[in-house]
Design a protein around this nucleic acid. Structure first.
Lengths: 141, 141
DNA sequence: CTGTATCCTTAGGGATACTG
DNA sequence: CAGTATCCCTAAGGATACAG
């Protein structure tokens, strides 16, 4: 799986993520997968920011193409699809955590749970481990 | 200085950074300030990705408005302007470092210096301290 | 050298109807 | 429920000329 194989403006690592996440929606899908336990199309659609269905479909396709998420048909209910983060996608966790830390510090209206921010500052590794454990657990079901 | 005071889609911390950096250009300016020692309009303009002058002017304004960069007229050469990161802007360093780590891992064509990536993995704090020291040094001049 | 101003094009995205 | 398909529109952005 080749990510961004062609047509990128440069080979700078910062630019690399911009080619994938440089829009207003993609990262929200990752957030929902990572922190909110969402797995189904309709759940993403229901997020606060109100993504529209065509945009969501497009982002899910791109993310799958770039190897960041994986798709699977729900074994119990057919006609339900499950999305989950690939290892490459899970490896974005430190990025999202640093973003959360920065926002928590400078956004006066942030709704991030205090406990989360405190632990983030105190013991980032432990927090990261717990988030990843949650994902593993969900996968086992 | 109030960042994103109105009109944000939600108060989620991930969404907060998207309101500021959710486009293809803003983060490149930060990168240039943080890692490439750029300080002048013309230097940003000359970056590999080829930002156009109206977009650059717009991004510089927004970043200043959001308290992420600061502007100053060059004391030696008048009619030269110096941009620098504010503390709030410098505090984005951990975010950029995690982005660099992730990209370095998954972008086969990344041009990030090997030494940088190795140190990033080995001793992130030391690396961060060095980058910040460079910024301080530049400020003293 | 540091921007503004203008013009123009395109891609991103909202709304909504529809399909398996 | 999980998407496609369409229509339409606006904002983002390229090119370029010009001004202080």
């Amino acid at each position: 799986m080749e990510h961004n194989s062609d047509r990128c403006r440069s080979h700078c690592p910062i630019n690399f993520v911009l080619e994938t996440f440089g829009d207003k929606w993609t990262l929200l899908v990752i957030r929902d997968l990572m922190f909110h336990g969402k797995r189904h199309y309709g759940e993403f659609l229901a997020s606060d920011e109100g993504i529209s269905t065509n945009i969501l479909a497009d982002r899910l396709q791109r993310l799958e193409r770039d190897g960041i998420i994986e798709k699977e048909v729900d074994p119990s209910h057919r006609s339900k699809v499950i999305y989950r983060l690939s290892p490459k996608g899970r490896d974005l966790l430190p990025v999202l955590l640093e973003i959360t830390r920065w926002s928590g510090k400078y956004d006066s209206k942030s709704n991030a749970p205090k406990a989360f921010l405190t632990e983030l500052q105190k013991d980032r590794r432990r927090l990261a481990a717990r988030v990843l454990a949650t994902l593993d657990e969900a996968d086992d079901r």
